[in-house]
Every structure is written in structure tokens, then in C-alpha cells.
């Protein structure tokens, strides 16, 4: 493993380490698709917050292919897949007391989503 020396610091900071993966993986959804977030309760690492599980939203943007954290955190490989910005209306997440106009965006991996029935 490379030891970060003083000379390498600016490379480390200015380059960073994108988790974007340059592999042709087919997206499961398209912009405009209605999706239902899966109801999952994994004991492992996940980037799917509880408040979004079981909620309906709309795919607003496809950001391309990224490493999947749920496997990457556990030495189970990159499992590269698309990440989408999904739009939720606030009332879908928080109920009728939320202002009708307000919304929330969440970036979600393919494996967190199903087509909305």
C-alpha cells in the first residue's frame, strides 16, 4: 500500500477518490419513471435511510454507475449500478401536515428501488 508522503498530499486532496465506475451497466429505470423504494431492514451497511423505505417517488436524474455501498463496506465487491436522484413530495414522506409544495431529493442505487405498481 502506498504511504501518503508530504509530496503526495496535494494529489490525495485534489484528486480524491471517486466511487464512479467506468463500466457499462444497464440502468433499471429512466428519468420520469415512478419508483417504490424497497422496504429493507438490512443488518449490514446501507445508504437507504429508513424514512424513505416503502415510499413512492419519481426518477429525476440518472447519475451513472457507482460502487454499491452495501457490498463495498463488507468486502463483497463493487456491485456497480446506477444511482438516481429520486424526487419525493414532502407529504409522501411526512404526511398531510407537510407543506403541499415542498419536496425532497434523495440519491438512490438501483438495488433500493422497484417500479411503482
Amino acid at each position: 500500500m502506498p504511504v501518503i508522503t508530504k509530496d503526495l498530499v496535494s494529489v490525495l486532496i485534489n484528486t480524491g477518490g471517486s466511487t464512479r465506475v467506468a463500466k457499462p451497466v444497464a440502468p433499471r429505470f429512466r428519468v420520469g419513471d415512478r419508483v417504490l423504494v424497497r422496504t429493507l431492514n438490512p443488518e449490514h451497511h446501507t445508504r437507504l435511510p429508513r424514512y424513505a423505505r416503502g415510499k413512492r417517488g419519481t426518477v429525476e436524474h440518472d447519475h451513472g454507475v457507482f460502487v454499491f455501498p452495501d457490498t463495498s463496506a463488507h468486502d463483497e465487491g463493487e456491485k456497480p449500478q446506477h444511482v438516481y436522484t429520486v424526487r419525493f413530495v414532502a407529504r409522501e414522506l411526512w404526511g398531510p401536515s407537510a407543506p403541499e409544495r415542498d419536496t425532497l431529493r434523495l440519491d438512490l442505487w438501483d438495488d433500493y428501488l422497484d417500479p411503482a405498481p
Binding site: M1, P2, V3, I4, A73
Partner: peptide
Amino acid sequence: MMAAFGGGHFNVDQFRHGIE
């Protein structure tokens, strides 16, 4: 942490899970 991360001792997902 940054030096160890840059040295490849863990990835970002392992680090976040370490906190969780």
C-alpha cells in the same frame, strides 16, 4: 484518517460502517 484512507487501509463505505 486522511493519510490512512489515502494509503488504502479502508474504503469510504467501510469507514462509514465503522462509525455506524
